[in-house]
Amino acid sequence: MKQELDYTRGAKPLYAQLYDILLNKLKSGEYKKNDVLPTEAEFEERFGVSRITARRALAELVAKGFVKRQAGIGTMVISTSEKQGIKTRISLVDGQQQAPITRKNLAIKFVQPPESIAALFGVKGRAPLQYLTRIICRENDAPAQVNYIWLTPRLGTLTLDDVEKGLYSAFEERNENIDAYQDIITAGLPDEEDCRILSIDPAVPLLIKTRKGFNDRGELVEYTIAKHMAHYYQYIVENSR
């Protein structure tokens, strides 16, 4: 029987609702130390959410120190209370986050990467890698962000149709789920391509987020350079216990 989540406008994201449910089960004693949590497929059946949503909720539990992922076993409870100590959360938050997002994939093609990126993917002789360009807009708005995404050769040849329903869905279908990532956020000015795609002046400041996304085997799946129009976003650092 599926447990109902709140899909109404303005409700918490589904992964956050699922995280809250699991947290309550941990704190109430329904899940105890050394218990193995249900699989992502079981969460999909029980709550009617995608595996990506389930994976993100579990990742939050891992980050808080409640559970750990163990090869051959699954997601195991290691604590029913949050680890003590100061935790820092760094996030990039859209100042218009209540407005709907529209994603548009512009092109996906094979491009010879810079030497540094070729080395990250372990390709020899700077062999071409698939390169996805997409923009993110707000409703009735000009593009607020452009993403340049380098993809692992393990994905095979992708088309725009393959990524239309979501890039991470395409990863999941090819057993390249993102299990961990590293973000680095800097600031800079747009280059000629950014100006053309975002329709901005070369003097407009951008927030630049560089992401490395890894599968559960620790292999690099995506290397993304996301360039955000600075006036749409806030860079927030929160300190909490």
Rank of each mutant, 00 (worst) to 15 (best):
K2S: 14
L5P: 06
D6Q: 11
Y7F: 13
A11C: 08
K27C: 06
S28L: 02
N34A: 09
P38F: 07
P38A: 03
E40D: 14
F43V: 06
E44W: 01
E45N: 11
R51G: 14
R51K: 15
R55I: 00
A57S: 15
E60L: 11
Q70F: 06
G74A: 02
I78M: 04
I78N: 01
S81N: 03
K83I: 05
G85V: 04
I86F: 15
T102K: 15
K104M: 11
K104Q: 11
A107E: 15
V111W: 01
P114W: 01
I117K: 10
I117N: 11
I117D: 11
A118F: 08
G122S: 09
G125I: 02
A127N: 09
P128H: 10
L129C: 09
Y131C: 03
L132D: 04
T133D: 00
I136E: 14
A142F: 06
I149S: 05
I149P: 00
P153K: 06
L155M: 14
D162Q: 07
K165E: 15
F171G: 05
E172W: 07
D179M: 00
I184C: 10
I185Y: 05
I185A: 08
T186A: 08
G188K: 05
P190K: 04
E193W: 00
D194V: 06
R196P: 00
L198V: 09
L198R: 10
A203E: 12
I208F: 04
F214G: 03
E222S: 15
A226Q: 13
Q234W: 11
N239G: 09
